[in-house]
Amino acid sequence: MNIFRLAGDMTHLASVLVLLLKIHTIKSCAGISLKTQELYALVFATRYLDLFTDYISLYNTLMKLIFLVSSFSIVWYIRHHKIVRRSYDKDQDTFRHYFLVLPCFLLALVINEKFTVKEIMWTFSLYLEAVAILPQLVLLQRTRNIDNLTGQYVFLLGAYRSLYILNWIYRYFTEPHYVHWITWISGLVQTLLYADFFYYYFQSWKNNVKLELPA
């Protein structure tokens, strides 16, 4: 495992922990899109089916379990926790799941490496992860006013994606036969979706002012 991959996994883990910390300590999920969190839970549930069939390493298995448990816990908190759920802004978080889930599934049926259930689910999870942040970005745009933790959460997710791209470049030059078109293209699309947010995040950081997105 190279340094970019490890740093990518760690920022991904940090993003989830920041979110859980916010929900658990402040007992608030204000500004967090439940739609995005449900999509991530679906992403992990469909991608990590190989937990039952392949063993890669203890690290790999543990991280997969952490992402599965944390994503479902976050969804549970927002939906069912008696205090947290009151801070959920249902009227602003209106993105429809199926606008993203259905096209991703159809695309996975057509463009995949192998026409098997496991492979199609894995491909679907990659396509869905690429666009799962959209409800969150729409919510940020609508509410405009972003608290620090929510801003950091999205920033860490973007950092994780950028580091994964560096990881692929590194692996491409150091490992034989390392070519993964589906992973690369969907990963690139996913990272580009953060570009706009990153721009405003860095502006606010540079000028030392609160992050606010333009209407």
Binding site: R5, H12, D54, I56, S57, W122
Partner: peptide
């Protein structure tokens, strides 16, 4: 034939 590397990413 190139062997496919295992899917070791998360």
């Amino acid at each position: 034939d190139n062997p496919k590397p295992p899917k070791d990413e998360l």
